[in-house]
Design a protein around this nucleic acid. Structure first.
Length: 507
DNA sequence: TGATTGTGCGCG
DNA sequence: AAAGCGCGCACAATCA
């Protein structure tokens, strides 16, 4: 039995409590019990939790569970939305947020199909034999020896940045840190084994045998998704590092026998969202060919695709120097509306003002310390340091609000995409008894196409092989529907890169 | 000793 | 190439 619609009282409370699109609403603000963050007792959650099995161990202390409390809060939230001049947007935002919350639970229940043997093969191939007790894997041990030899320092320790830095200085390498980008520029016999060591050390500690044992059970990776865990509305994750599955490991993501993956990611989501928000027809036009960056080059705003990318990222992140800063005037000439939108958001933030996303999620206002720093700089006897500090924090906040409006609206688009797709997938017929089922995905999903992973602008659907082409079409249809839902008839398409395969490899 | 902070690297 | 957004995680160093 699948839930068709939901309203997440806690997440919507947070949106409505903070939104700029409603003024006042003291009723909502006085009910602070809805502000409590959920505490999910992960350890108590069974490997394949049933969706609404409240014996399953998901505990959310601090939130009233009584039906009367819930209904009262629901009524407050509806009244708040209805009284807003932007009721349509807020209604949409709450619906999208709630659908996302439901999907986050379902994603964890279904899990991402994981090929443990392939993962282990990969570890042995890269790291060498698994250490028996506490030591480093074979290849890392060899590389550590090579590093010590090259440095002529039998005590050199590649795991400790400060120690390593001293060792590097002793052989005359004038670096300020031990980070990869700085080391890469140097010519010295230690560099190659050291960079290799760092790469392997990362794999070993982040996604090695210990990770596998902790996070992959029953051939499924089940991360904990945290909807709206980021201030912009993006999801965060807690445990398992779901936001950082390294590209290398993607071939360990393998569909069940008789099943396939449909993987899809949106090409240049944030620039497209910016074009739509700003109503910038020229930028929308650049996006029409599918490759937005190529479109910017064709329009003559910059010289190369690489420049287009760096310039646009710089515009959304608030770059001022370097290549990106140098390219901004060209962008400003070609796309004045889009640039004005992000520049305005930055100026508002610098002044201490508040900005909001397309659907009304509002950035947190600056805190007391921020105002104190600004006030100190405005005093007649303010020191040079006071003034510099205030200027720096204003610029920092400007970059944050500049990015907030775009990143946050992109997150809203992605929620609409997910929610629409969920409904489309629910309409697929279950596979017949004679066909293989995805048992590990749980009873809800074992026989139907289902979402298996989501990350900002990318999703993976696990589907019976026969349904894969129709699922791929549904994924694109959902993207089109999301675009219409947020931006109506604005002429901009959201191009997806859709792939059907047994693994989730990108290239 | 245990909690906090900093570094480095992975992801979008 | 390493500025310019948002994260999580592991590990070492540092502080209490």
């Amino acid at each position: 039995m699948a839930v068709a619609r939901s309203h997440d009282l806690r997440l919507c409370h947070a949106i409505l409590r903070d939104t700029e699109l409603i003024n006042g609403e003291p009723e909502l603000r006085t009910h602070r019990e809805w502000d409590a963050a959920p505490v999910v007792e992960v350890a108590a959650v069974p490997a394949v939790p049933a969706l609404f099995d409240w014996d399953g161990g998901i505990v959310t202390p601090g939130i009233p569970h009584g039906v009367d409390d819930a209904l009262a809060e629901f009524a407050r939230q509806r009244a708040a939305i209805d009284s807003s001049a932007e009721a349509g947007r807020l209604r949409l935002l709450c619906a999208a947020e709630s659908a996302g919350a439901l999907i986050a639970v379902e994603l964890r229940a279904a899990g991402l199909p994981w090929d443990v043997e392939e993962h282990e093969r990969l570890l042995v191939e890269q790291l060498g034999a698994r250490p028996l007790a506490g030591g480093r894997p074979e290849r890392m041990t060899q590389l550590a020896d090579d590093i010590r030899d090259a440095l002529g320092d039998p005590k050199a320790n590649p795991d400790s940045p400060p120690q390593l830095l001293r060792s590097l200085h002793r052989v005359g390498l004038a670096v300020e840190s031990t980070s990869r980008w700085e080391l890469r520029e140097l010519e010295h016999p230690v560099i190659e084994p050291l960079l290799t060591y760092k790469k392997l050390a990362r794999l070993y500690s982040a996604n090695g045998w210990a990770w596998l044992a902790e996070w992959v059970h029953d051939r499924r990776f089940r991360p904990v998704y945290v909807p709206a865990g980021v201030v912009t509305g993006r999801w965060a994750s807690s445990g398992g590092g779901a936001l950082q599955i390294p590209r290398m490991l993607r071939r360990a993501v393998r569909a069940d026998p008789g099943w396939l993956f449909v993987t899809a990611d949106v090409a240049q989501l944030e620039p497209r969202v910016l074009a739509a928000m700003a109503g910038d027809l020229a930028l929308a036009d650049a996006a029409r060919g599918g490759d937005l960056y190529a479109g910017i080059v064709d329009a003559g705003a910059v010289g190369t695709r690489a420049e287009a990318k760096v310039a646009l990222l710089g515009a959304m992140y608030g770059a001022t120097t370097g290549d990106s800063g140098r390219l901004l005037p060209g962008l400003r000439r070609a796309y004045p509306r889009a640039m004005r939108l992000v520049d305005d958001a930055a100026r508002t933030g610098e002044r201490g003002g508040v900005v909001h996303t397309w659907l009304g999620r509002t950035a947190p206002p600056p805190g007391g310390r921020w105002h104190a720093v600004r006030a100190a700089a405005a005093e007649p006897d303010a020191s040079r340091a006071d003034v510099d500090r205030a200027r720096r924090q204003a610029a920092d906040r400007g970059r944050f609000t500049r990015n907030f409006v775009v990143q946050g609206t992109a997150a809203e688009w992605a929620l609409a995409w997910l929610g629409d797709l969920r409904a489309r997938l629910a309409a697929f017929p279950p596979v017949p008894e004679s066909e293989p089922a995805a048992e590990a995905s749980g009873v809800r999903f074992a026989r139907v196409p289902h979402l298996a992973f989501f990350l900002h602008d990318e999703l993976i659907v696990h589907t019976p092989a026969a349904s894969a082409p129709k699922v791929a079409a549904a994924v694109q249809d959902a993207a089109d529907a999301a675009a219409r839902l947020l931006f109506g008839t604005f002429p901009l398409d959201f191009r997806l890169d859709v792939k059907i395969g047994e693994t989730a490899e990108k290239e």
